[in-house]
């Protein structure tokens, strides 16, 4: 039962990792941009949540109503005002600009909020759990997070494959020049993609803040988890990203049980093993 418990915990943590990863996967799929600042933006969202929760006295989940639109707007502005100018055949500019951005965000947060650990008050939800079977209980909050991940991915999947905007996203991803001939403004499409990416990041950041303590330095670690989930799942596959998050979560929890203190390492090692044997991930896209 202990082990089943661990696996279930791992799966639920995987939901949070999938939320970390979805935005990264989306913008890579649409504009081949890898955002090194992605993890720091997650932490930025946690701190935004903190400011709103303490400033307005709102419950963190209610604060999402403000954090998500704010991050959406930030994403649009960031892409339109900065990152669009880095896109091109050379991979260095986007990489180095987002790397610089990562350092800027980290240190700005450090300057404003200090290096102290913070937490978003989750209240009774923090400890609430439900009994699934004899000896198997799961936390209500992790289940909510996991369900959110599923809903977000399903929603994005619908957006991408069932709407005109989604077709425009895919067309721009395939061939930006020809997409422009169709009347698609790719700068706007890229900005919307980043906006959606950061809206998901907002969700991930607030959930992260409710689940564990956070401080300005933890961004890069979240980027790495997101990156691993994306690669394990297969580039460009959103459902794959969820599976990637789950694999990572389960590996960490099982690894931590087997070798105390080595949970992160276990996650990385499983990632590397998958990279060696399935370099295109578990669910590679047919075309890329």
């Amino acid at each position: 039962m202990d082990w089943i418990n661990a696996v279930v915990q791992g799966i639920l943590v995987g939901g949070l990792y999938a939320l970390f990863a979805t935005g990264l996967s989306l913008i890579f799929g649409i504009m081949r941009l890898v955002n090194i600042a992605h993890g720091d933006l997650i932490v930025l969202a946690s701190f935004l949540g903190l400011v709103i929760v303490t400033g307005l006295g709102l419950y963190p989940l209610v604060a999402l109503l403000i954090v998500v639109p704010l991050m959406f707007a930030l994403g649009y502005a960031l892409q339109r005002g900065l990152l669009n100018f880095t896109l091109g055949s050379d991979i260095l500019p986007p990489l180095l600009v987002t790397f610089g951005l990562s350092i800027i965000i980290q240190n700005a947060l450090l300057e404003i909020f200090s290096a102290d650990s913070q937490k978003l008050p989750a209240g009774p939800l923090q400890t609430a759990s439900m009994q699934i079977a004899e000896g198997l209980a799961v936390g209500v909050f992790p289940v909510i997070v996991f369900a959110c991940a599923v809903v977000v991915i399903a929603g994005l999947q619908l957006l991408l494959y069932r709407t005109a905007l989604g077709a425009a996203f895919r067309a721009t991803s395939d061939d930006p020049d020809t997409a422009r001939l169709m009347g698609i403004d790719n700068r706007h499409i890229f900005a919307l993609a980043m906006a959606i990416s950061l809206a998901v990041v907002a969700l991930a950041g607030v959930f992260l803040g409710m689940r564990t303590a956070f401080d300005p330095s933890i961004g890069p670690g979240r980027l790495i988890y997101a990156f691993e989930a994306v690669i394990i799942g297969g580039l460009g596959s959103l459902w794959g990203t969820l599976v990637g998050g789950i694999v990572l979560g389960v590996s960490q929890i099982i690894g931590g049980k087997l070798f105390p203190g080595a949970d992160q390492l276990a996650g990385h090692v499983v990632f590397l093993i998958i990279l060696v044997f399935r370099p295109r991930g578990l669910f590679p896209r047919a075309m890329d």
């Binding site: 005109a164 077709a167 425009a168 895919r170 067309a171 991803s173 395939d174 061939d175 020809t178 997409a179 169709m182 009347g183 698609i184 075309m287």
Partner: peptide, 16 residues
């Protein structure tokens, strides 16, 4: 557009 179906390719022609 390779990731769009025939019908989607046509429809996106009317994006404007």
């Amino acid at each position: 557009f390779p990731s769009l179906s025939v019908e989607e390719n046509l429809k996106i022609g009317n994006y404007s």
